[in-house]
Design a protein around this nucleic acid. Structure first.
Lengths: 233, 233
DNA sequence: CCTCCTATTAACGTATGCACTATTTTGTCT
DNA sequence: AGACAAAATAGTGCATACGTTAATAGGAGG
């Protein structure tokens, strides 16, 4: 048995892939979504590496992935810069997501959901109602995010799930910023419940209709919110 | 002036970002899409680095990006493995893309296109017609790809453009494989022309309707094609 | 004082080095 | 010969090193 000079970091984890790069990816992404790294915030690769206790290599890998997802830009000489969510992008995401969710809802209404799946949807709506009663907009925001993710994830189309999840994360990032500026979202809960009802009845037509009109209403409100936040193109 | 020992590679290019990593990314992606790297094909990082005349670092960066786009998998000990296009994934892509393109068409019909934009669409259809007359399925396939990309790119929603383009590239990868198995696509040209007509008239309703029914027809044909190719879930 | 040019610095992009580990190969025992 | 254990091998994931170059600071000239 050759004795190897174990320098440091005993590499306790055995199983999965990329530890360090994965950690860097998750931490930076989380910081961006939660607003810790504000739009425009810059950080050098070395800086991040130091903060995470790793070398530039895994940090760079994380940055490349995040840049591909448009969370950051890699500016040649200044490291990463956190992308701003422009009004344009928010509107675009809202529009695309509307279409994808309508597709998901249509699919859901077209197949028989298990009792458990329906219970999950009901629970998600219940959580939203509870948050609304407590006037807890942050909790409502989280619950709404959860509901939308659930709706998408139940649809079974993994390609759709992947794309919609990415967009939902970005929408959630915006929601975290905008929550204080939004009026009490009473319509949302009612509409979500109605969509689930249509899904339960197996009525794709109605599910899509409701979802569409809800999105249209929110689209109009969005304009005001963007104004109040002073976000421009 | 300090004389620096210029070792090799005079770095002739000045302007843009990542040269090497970008090259690796483009070459591998192209090889996968064009079928040079068949599904299941494996290659080690060192192997690719050698082939491209660079070190493992930029190759790895390219692989990480491609893995994120699901063109390849990074298998811990065997380098990259080219992902197979499963029947399931193809159907999923077809479904999502149908929705996105319908959205794009709707948007196009809802705004006034410039004469040049309409001319571009007409030209794309003309190219498809020409290919069909010449019984050149490969050329038709390229022209069809071009038409769909154009349709999407004219819609103005950059988020939609980005997502749809990724999906169109994958669909194109499938088309390259499946072209020999497909019956002569007569309907497609007629339908594409009808969609453009609806867009020209500014009739979103009809544009969406036609697009939908076309996608439904293709969806049915797809099942046969998948059978003939022996692609299973 | 302002402008232009030069020298320095700093950060990226890439190359290389190193340790850890899954896999394979070799050798021994039954 | 087959099965199991031990050692060699190979390849990743990360750390470090290096050259290039953009940005900046400092000095000279107008």
């Amino acid at each position: 048995m050759i004795e190897k000079p174990v320098l440091e970091s005993s590499m306790a984890d055995a199983g999965s892939a990329n530890r360090q790069a994965e950690i860097a990816y998750a931490r930076i992404k989380d910081a961006v979504i939660r607003g810790e790294f504000a739009p425009g915030h810059q950080a050098l690769e070395q800086e991040l590496a130091l903060r995470f206790g790793m070398s530039r290599t895994p940090v760079r890998e994380a940055l490349v992935r995040l840049a591909q997802e448009r969370y950051i830009e890699l500016v040649p000489r200044r490291g990463m810069r956190v992308s701003a969510l422009s009004a344009r992008e928010i509107r675009e995401i809202n529009e695309v997501l509307g279409g994808l969710e309508a597709q998901a809802a249509e699919r859901l209404a077209s197949r028989k959901l298990t009792a458990e799946e329906l219970a999950q949807l009901d629970a998600a709506i219940a959580a939203m109602d509870r948050a609304l009663e407590n006037e807890d907009l942050t909790a409502w925001s989280e619950a709404d995010y959860h509901f939308h993710r659930l709706l998408v994830e139940l649809c079974g189309n993994r390609t759709l799930i992947g794309i919609a999840t990415q967009l939902l994360e970005k929408a959630h990032r915006f929601r975290i910023i905008s929550t204080p500026q939004r009026s009490r979202p009473v319509y949302s809960n009612v509409n979500h419940a109605a969509v689930v009802e249509a899904i339960r009845r197996g009525d794709p037509q109605t599910a899509v209709e409701i979802h569409r009109s809800h999105k249209r209403r929110w689209s109009r409100e969005l304009t005001d919110v963007l104004d109040r936040l002073g976000i421009d193109e």
